[in-house]
Nucleic acid binder design. Structure first.
Length: 561
RNA sequence: UGGCCCAUGGUGUAAUUGGCAACACUCCGGUUUUUGGUACCGUCAUUCAAGGUUCGAGUCCUUGUGGGCCAACCA
């Protein structure tokens, strides 16, 4: 894979340099480190694809490591959901790890730090400590407990561990430099007291290590060679390295933290807080609502793992601010679904057609190709009869030459069927067309090979036999936000940009072959778009989500007029 | 009145490490088509600015401009 002609991203360049400098390829190791306090979303997918993609490229192991150091926020349910989502994306982790597996080691190392006079127990309030910490432009000052004796520190830390203190009474801090230009080096807290049950260690501990102390050391324990995180952790690197300096042994791999810019997707938000707000305020129905940018939402929407991986692959990875247009994501679903989704006919906005010269009561089954992109997909039979539905938008009494569809006096091809001609139509009191009377050319049947069947007519319409149609609930999804970057406006709340038409529920009429469809089945409704059977479906009634519409150049032509 | 990071078409990412600015998406135009889909072809940049080094700069240096991050007992 490493001889792939594809251009390398800057992380890969770093790895190649390390390799060139003598780092052993067999020592390469990566990790994906989610905190189990929420659901994975499209932004995480980039990170997952980066890390696991590196694992594939270099045949290196990738661990799934849960960064579970804050029992106040973390739950087993999230662990399960995260594992399911990573798996669904198509990745296998080498080993499943938990930062909590290392609590004892971390504790032992903390004792060493204290003994070396590199850590101390601070007994001030967080407000007092914040005051001493200074600001980005002002140096901090040493606090009153900074020079406690090693013995006292040892004793207090032991008592913290033994549960002798309330939350907030004491913390353990690394003794680094209160005057550092890097705020994170101003004696960062490494342990706090938390009387909370942990989803894995239960009540074994009442002190919990902080992120900075935990993450790098966990990388070291796992011998992760390249620890990749997002840009906001860049200032943490100095601390990451400082902590590593305290424990690193010479013959072991020293992990290297490198930072990349998180990918931002247009027309959505991705912060856990905002996603939660959408759920709680019932803007969406759940975390896996098909409008959510969560992996579970995308899955339910009908996205394929391949399309998400291809998307992640083409957007790449870099260090600059970015806003990736959803159209790129949509391109990748269409690209994949075009290859794999069986074609099927469904009418979503029906107009009744009566074929007046077709015998009443007659029905015949026509052969329809399942997927023109995939011969192996075979064919199926669809029923045809005297009364069918077509889309309202496919008929006009009069129209100019650009309108390739059905109009009075003109012909059109019914997909997989006959050529029909519109003769007349009937309207309701308001003037709406409610039925069109057509005649068909009996010899024009698709695939019959007759001269008539080979006639070129400009338009081809999808249709469904009324008598045979299955009715189903169709959920038409659109972008959740009308603004491309809803949460970056200084004067407006992201909720102001919620698209009121992000979901339209209608009734659709489907060809009967869909009867056996199951949740997560993906299909193309010809000329309409890609759809996916929803888990809300019952044996009585299908519920079908629109994943994404087909590209629609007709809509563009109309927009221009 | 600090420190650090970043800047390449409308969008995202490349550029063999100083040698013809490339790929994908979008947009627009066209060819093919029993999906106005797919496929295929074509158009769209003086690389934030100004200086400097060099035979040669997107790449190196300086300054400026613009954007981002940093003061949670979160990760």
């Amino acid at each position: 894979m490493s001889d792939s002609p594809k251009a390398l991203n800057f992380i890969e360049h770093i790895i190649e340099e390390d390799l060139a400098k003598g780092f052993s390829k067999s020592d390469l190791r990566f990790r994906f480190p989610p905190e189990p306090n929420g659901y994975l979303h499209i932004g995480h997918a980039s990170s997952i694809c980066l890390n696991f993609g590196l694992g594939e490229r270099y045949s290196a192991p990738v661990n799934l490591r849960f960064d579970d150091t804050n029992p106040a926020k973390e739950e087993q349910a999230f662990v399960d959901a995260i594992k399911r989502d990573v798996h669904w994306l198509g990745y296998e982790w080498n080993t499943e790890r938990y930062a909590s597996d290392y609590f004892q080691q971390l504790y032992d190392w903390a004792i060493d730090l204290i003994k070396q006079n590199k850590a101390y127990v601070d007994s001030q309030s967080s407000e007092e400590m914040a005051l001493q910490k200074g600001t980005p432009t002002e140096e901090g000052v040493d606090g009153p407990y900074r020079n406690r004796s090693v013995e006292e520190n040892l004793k207090l830390f032991q008592e913290m561990k033994d549960g002798k203190f309330q939350e907030g009474e004491h913390v353990l801090r690394a003794k680094i430099d209160m005057a550092s230009t890097n705020m994170l080096m101003r004696d960062p807290i490494i342990y706090r007291v938390l009387h909370k049950a942990h989803h894995r260690t239960n009540t074994d501990w009442c002190i919990y290590p902080m992120y900075d102390w935990t993450h790098g050391e966990s990388d070291y324990i796992e011998q992760v060679s390249h620890s990749l995180c997002t840009l906001e952790f860049l200032p943490h690197r100095e601390l990451y390295d400082w902590f590593l300096d305290q424990v690193c042994e010479e013959n072991k791999v020293r992990p290297k933290q490198r930072e990349f810019a998180r990918r931002n997707l247009s027309h959505t938000v991705v912060s856990k807080r905002k996603l939660l707000q959408l759920v709680e305020q019932n803007v969406v129905n759940s975390w896996d609502d098909p409008r959510m940018p969560t992996i579970s939402g995308l899955r339910r929407r009908g996205y394929t793992p391949e399309s998400i991986r291809n998307f992640a692959d083409t957007i790449g990875i870099a260090k600059r601010e970015n806003l990736i247009d959803v159209s790129l994501l949509e391109f990748h679903v269409r690209e994949h679904l075009n290859k794999i989704a069986p074609r099927v006919m469904a009418v979503l906005d029906p107009l009744k057609i009566v074929i007046t010269n077709y015998p009443e009561g007659k029905e015949e089954w026509l052969t329809a190709e399942n997927n023109p992109e995939d011969e192996a997909a075979g064919s199926r039979e669809v029923p045809f009869s005297r009364e069918i539905y077509i889309e309202k938008a496919d008929f006009r009494e009069e129209a100019n030459k650009k309108f390739f569809r059905l109009k009075l006096g003109r012909e059109v091809r019914l997909k997989n069927g006959y050529i029909i001609k519109a003769e007349s139509c009937t309207k309701d009191e308001e003037g709406n067309v409610i039925e069109v009377q057509c005649t068909y050319d009996e010899k024009s049947k698709s695939g019959s090979g007759t001269e008539e069947s080979l006639r070129k007519v400009k338009g081809t319409l999808h249709w469904v036999s009324i008598k045979h149609a299955l009715t189903s609930e169709i959920r038409l999804y659109d972008r959740l936000f009308t603004d491309e970057s809803p949460d970056t406006h200084k004067d407006k709340d992201f909720m102001d940009f919620v698209n009121p038409e992000s979901l339209k529920t209608i009734t659709g009429y489907l060809e009967p072959s869909l009867k056996a469809a199951k949740p997560e089945d993906r299909i193309q409704f010809q000329r309409l778009g890609y759809f996916c059977v929803d888990k809300d479906s019952t044996s009585e009634k299908l519920v079908i989500n629109r994943t994404v519409g087909l590209r629609d150049s007709w809509a563009k032509i109309q927009e221009k007029n």
